[in-house]
Design a protein around this nucleic acid. Structure first.
Length: 435
RNA sequence: GGAGAGAUGGCAGAGUGGUUUAACGCGCACGCCUGGAAAGCGUGAAUACCCAAAAGGUAUCGGGGGUUCGAAUCCCCCUCUCUCCGCCA
């Protein structure tokens, strides 16, 4: 959520920054300014009336204490209609405020000034490249072939259970997935200073709203567990990413300044509807409805936000470096960035069997956009309350890391050679076809 | 799932319709006192919003609604916590 004061004071600046995303939000800014003005006028009026009522009520109390009943009754009659006026204005103010707030929730974050202006993914600049595409003495197979021949994933039976886009990992495939999760958690917790958390996999709508996934992308997520009484319990949603529960851990809190920065690391499965997305339903593991991910979250002071973003990207890159995978880091241009982000880097790993780069990590600084939405603040030593920057990054997404790993490490004989750092976790150095 | 109890400031805890402007205490910050500290004394200290600012005002006693001139207090609904029973990985 943007700062209403910023919109009030610098509407042209806000309009101009929003325009770099490619959406015309001018009408909405105008509407917001109008509603904001209305609300303030009503408030000024109703608060004056309330002050008057409070004063009279107190006087009546004093008269009652002095047993001057007749006088008290007279004052009561005098102020009888004050309450009706107040109730009407209160209602009006609440309506205007609700409309204003609903509109506020729909406005995306302002891109940071360092972000490249652009429209689509083609405008995303490549920031750096690590390693290079390997040469194979044979034609590298796709992960689908490798998974079938090595019996790592049973695509057909996964689809039988839950439809296309759901994976049944089997035998060494299941073990590789588990080994990767463990490897990633140990790396970030042991080497990079994150604290591991294991959050609920279902969250209320307020958490999705807090990180900016609601209200705009409501049909992307799986709603479940409506409970006995739908009206009563409301809906819970399967987490689309660990960011949703973990970034919300300190919602509606005021943290002491000395408790910052907070670094969290969490493994969860991620559930996504992927409604209308290209590639769902095709074979393979590139785009699925459920995948595993290890997520990194940072809550930091505003002045540290962008420094910490660079470190977070480096933490995610370390994963690929240790596994010996070729990748590149790109910056998302203004038109391609997510709703809540002010600046985003994507890490794309090379998958030789696919002949493409796959996005395995997305690291964003949302600045105070999310902390405003969830009302998370910290108190400075000077006693001021401020909104911290909240950062999120994948470290990394698993299904695609799995793909890049088996495709990159495949051998001429059809086996997959396990990278050194992963061997203690998988307890083998090679996955070979059954004889 | 059943029964009961509860939710008040950083903590603890009074407060059953009107000087409550939320007592008393502990803890915290600052000041006085002191060689320095403790004790003692004094002052301050929540969150959001309105107002250009200051002064001031409004709201908030788990959340929402109601009664009333006036609600922490009375009524209704909800959420959460604790105890006991049942069920259960």
């Amino acid at each position: 959520m943007l700062d209403i004061k910023l919109i009030r004071e610098k509407p042209d600046f806000v309009r101009q920054r929003l325009a770099t995303r490619g959406a015309g939000d001018d009408a909405r800014i105008d509407e917001l300014l109008k509603l904001d003005d209305q609300r303030r006028k009503i408030l000024a009026e109703v608060e004056t009336l309330k002050a008057q009522r409070n004063r009279v009520s107190k006087e009546i109390g004093v008269l009652m204490g002095q047993k001057k009943i007749a006088e008290a009754e007279a004052r009561k009659a005098e102020t009888k209609d004050l309450g009706d006026k107040i109730a009407a204005l209160d209602k009006e103010a609440a309506q205007v405020e609700a409309t204003r707030d609903a509109l506020m929730l729909q406005l995306p974050n302002l891109p940071h000034e360092s972000v490249t202006i652009g429209k689509t993914a083609e405008d995303n600049p490549v920031i750096r490249v690590h390693g290079e595409k390997q040469n194979y003495a044979f034609k590298p197979k796709s992960h689908v072939e490798l998974c079938e021949s090595l019996k790592l994933v049973d695509f057909a039976r996964g689809a039988k259970l839950s439809g296309s886009g759901f994976l049944l990992y089997t035998n060494w495939g299941a073990r590789l997935e588990r080994a990767l999760i463990q490897f990633l958690l140990d790396l970030h917790v042991g080497q990079h200073g994150y604290t591991e958390v294991s959050p609920p996999l279902m969250v209320g709508p307020h958490c999705l709203e807090g990180v900016g996934q609601f209200p705009k992308f409501k049909d992307q997520y799986y709603g479940v567990a409506e409970g006995d009484d739908k009206e009563k319990l409301g809906k819970l949603y399967l987490v689309p990413t660990a960011e949703t529960p973990v970034a919300n851990i300190h919602r509606e809190e005021i943290l002491p300044e000395k408790s910052l920065p907070v670094f969290y690391c969490a493994y969860t499965p991620c559930f996504r509807g992927e409604a209308g997305a290209a590639g769902v339903g095709t074979r393979g593991m590139i785009r699925v409805h459920q995948f595993d991910k290890v997520e990194l979250i940072k809550i930091v002071k505003p002045e540290e936000g962008y420094g910490e973003l660079e470190k977070m990207v480096a933490n995610a890159e370390k994963v690929l470096q240790l596994l010996g995978l070729h990748y590149r880091v790109i910056m998302l241009c203004t038109g391609d960035m997510g709703f809540g982000s002010a600046k985003t880097y994507d890490i794309e790993v090379w998958a030789p069997g696919q002949g493409t780069y796959l996005e395995v990590s997305s690291c964003s600084n949302c600045e105070d956009f999310q902390s405003r939405r969830m009302s998370l603040r910290f108190k400075t030593e000077g006693g001021d309350n401020k909104f911290p920057h909240i950062l999120n990054g994948s470290g990394t997404a698993l299904a695609r890391l799995f793909v890049a790993l088996v495709e990159t490490c495949q051998q001429a004989d059809g086996s997959v050679l396990i990278p050194e750092p992963l061997r203690p976790y998988l307890k083998t150095d090679k996955i070979a076809p059954a004889p």
